[in-house]
Design a protein around this nucleic acid. Structure first.
Lengths: 233, 233
DNA sequence: CAGTGGTCTAGACCACAGG
DNA sequence: CTGTGGTCTAGACCACTGA
């Protein structure tokens, strides 16, 4: 791993462990660079990322400070959990599970090598037996060897956690609206040209490892997206 | 001004002028560095900021590309700020500003007394003169007396902050997809039955005071919603 | 004034993509 | 293989802060 990422990770740990507390000034760039035995430019890259992630705040001529704990919130809840919370009985129909070859834009997002294969897992998610969403996950085979041996009608999150020890930390999603084409309409038992919510993005596990890419469609009348946005402008 | 900012500005101009078009690969870092007469590290700082601002996308081993022009809503940024960051000229047309009486489901959400009146502010938001979204805000008159005296073509956030001292902390939004009915289609210059993103929710200011309720529609091909979800289930 | 972060240089080696 | 972006170094000068 890149040195600056090691440094970033270490500093991040120190912040969450309370070695550097909220509002504290951390040591100067030159001091830290010497302590870690890296050049100042390298150390700065670590600090800059931590600043972008909202952990640090720099003040010219004064120093670098740990930000107060305004962290983003909102639960990363799987489809299954969301439905259960609403007392709807979730079910899943497997549409397709297969291995596919390199797909460039996905490899780019997940930062995997160009000739890694993926599992493509396409599932129809239902609530009380009514189709609600069509979820397609692309996950590198090396991350989850033999995942096709699992019962994929279960919660995907649970399989990743209990089967492989991953822990989902965050997702970066893009949300848009689209119309159902004939394929989507037929699979989801929706009217052609009805409005669908399209959610696509990458989910990350421990150490900010990009774990899988997902592209999902939901019937908007049945499944809305709730988001809490925390400020910091 | 810092050299890298000059470079960034120049590259940004070239993108908006179409010298580098959407999807184009721009010259390599080494080439550009030489062309501008700066070191590669300096040039990279310009490129990195342009990447963060969403203008460029880098692909290891392949090159740096101009991104397509989709807009993304990020964190708690007002519409105006989002557009400015992408060097699109924002404009606003006032559709309607009036006082309305008690609306039960809104009063419920904002937790105000049942006979408080609201300002209803309906505005068409445009980028480079093209309609992108139709935003309707309901805000209790007691929270912002005489807000109709302000120039409401400006950023609503700025008016609330500078005119009334509010500070927006968070929003709780619900996102869904819908079809444009004839009224929406006509106001937004969209096709009838095209897919729209509907965003509705409450924005809170200091001390978690529910400040206003908003119901907005966006053309999904022009304005996408970007969300970072932090875990902890 | 001394110390801080902000910027900048001119190299270097690496891993990766594509031919 | 060549060319790309990713990372890294060991210096340097600047503008700013606070004493």
């Amino acid at each position: 791993m890149a040195i600056y990422k090691e440094v970033k990770s270490d500093l991040s740990d120190k912040i969450s462990e309370g070695v550097y507390k909220s509002g504290d000034r951390i040591p100067s760039e030159r001091t830290l660079a010497q302590a870690y035995g890296v050049s100042r430019m390298t150390l700065r890259q670590a600090l800059n990322e931590l600043e972008n992630d909202g952990f640090l705040r720099k003040e010219k001529g004064r120093g670098t400070f740990v930000t107060s704990k305004d962290l983003y919130q909102e639960n990363l809840r799987s489809f299954t959990h969301t439905l259960i919370a609403r007392q709807i009985v979730p079910s899943t129909r497997i549409i397709e599970v297969c291995k596919v070859r390199h797909i460039r834009h996905i490899s780019q997002l997940l930062q995997v090598h160009r000739d890694e294969a993926y599992y493509k897992i396409k599932r129809l998610r239902c609530g009380d037996e009514v189709p609600i969403g069509l979820e397609t996950v692309y996950i590198p085979v090396i991350h989850v060897p033999d995942i096709d041996q699992y019962d994929l009608t279960q919660s995907f999150y649970t399989i990743l956690e209990e089967g492989y020890g991953y822990e989902m930390i965050r997702s970066a999603c893009e949300i848009e609206a689209c119309l159902a084409n004939s394929i989507l309409a037929s699979l989801m038992e929706a009217k052609k040209k009805s409005a669908l919510l399209k959610v696509s993005g990458v989910t990350y596990s421990q150490e900010d490892k990009a774990l899988f890419y997902e592209e999902s469609y939901y019937k908007s009348d049945l499944y809305k997206y709730h988001v809490d946005i925390m400020g910091q402008r």
